[in-house]
Design a protein around this nucleic acid. Structure first.
Lengths: 114, 114
DNA sequence: CTTTCGTTCAACCATATGGGTGAATAACAC
DNA sequence: GTGTTATTCACCCATATGGTTGAACGAAAG
């Protein structure tokens, strides 16, 4: 049996990644390394508050981590959780491939029966 | 220049995949091959209507296709769009790796300057 | 002591989302 | 014709979401 991880974790990751602003934040962090909330917000056409909330969402999904050095919060991208998407995808694809294999086998056997 | 695809397409794919029920539908279709809407709905603890709407969402994201043979609609999983997630992920990771490389290079140069 | 700084918290608003029920549709079986 | 089947459409509802503005906090600087 494959170790079934909490599906809500994957849901949170996918949902967090489904917002364009949040994906841009991840890209920005990947490019620049850790940044302060204010510095991130400066790049966007939204209020600081809106960006702060996006960061909280990303944090909740584990896609960024926060290093709080008193009032300055350093936000850093975390690539690890993203690989859960990969895992899910690979799993789905293998289920799919398995069925096709079984189908092939069945057809072949059917042919032998003729 | 990398061909920049419509980011809203990726958003739709991620959002569609972020719902547990919809992921289960995809898994079901990957296992069983094309199914009728009714047969899909039978597996879930939701109204036929709710499942129908989920399927429409998946269809909108291109994750399933529909073969309408009069009143019976055959729903089939489409793996292709999912690879856009892979692409995005790979791109983000490469941006990230690039920064680390540059960081390494800078440190090395700094050392040479000493 | 007052101001500034970086950030979150608390409301609030409009819209989206996931769910439900009931009707409409059009072919097919009786 | 009447009923059954498979599916969507049109509403309705509660809650989530993305955005706004304004207040609060607590250290540091003037």
């Amino acid at each position: 049996m494959v170790e079934r991880k909490d599906p809500s974790a994957l849901s949170a990751i996918l949902k967090a990644a489904s917002d364009p602003t949040r994906r841009q934040i991840l890209t920005l962090l990947a490019q620049n390394g850790p940044l302060k909330v204010t510095d991130i917000a400066r790049r966007f056409d939204q209020s600081l508050n809106a960006v702060s909330k996006h960061i909280k969402t990303l944090e909740g999904a584990g896609l960024v981590s926060r290093l709080t050095e008193w009032r300055e919060h350093l936000i850093e991208v975390q690539m690890a959780p993203l690989s859960e998407i990969d895992t899910w995808f690979a799993e789905l694809r293998s289920i799919w491939a398995l069925r096709l294999d079984a189908l092939d086998a069945a057809l072949k056997e059917d042919n032998d029966d003729k």
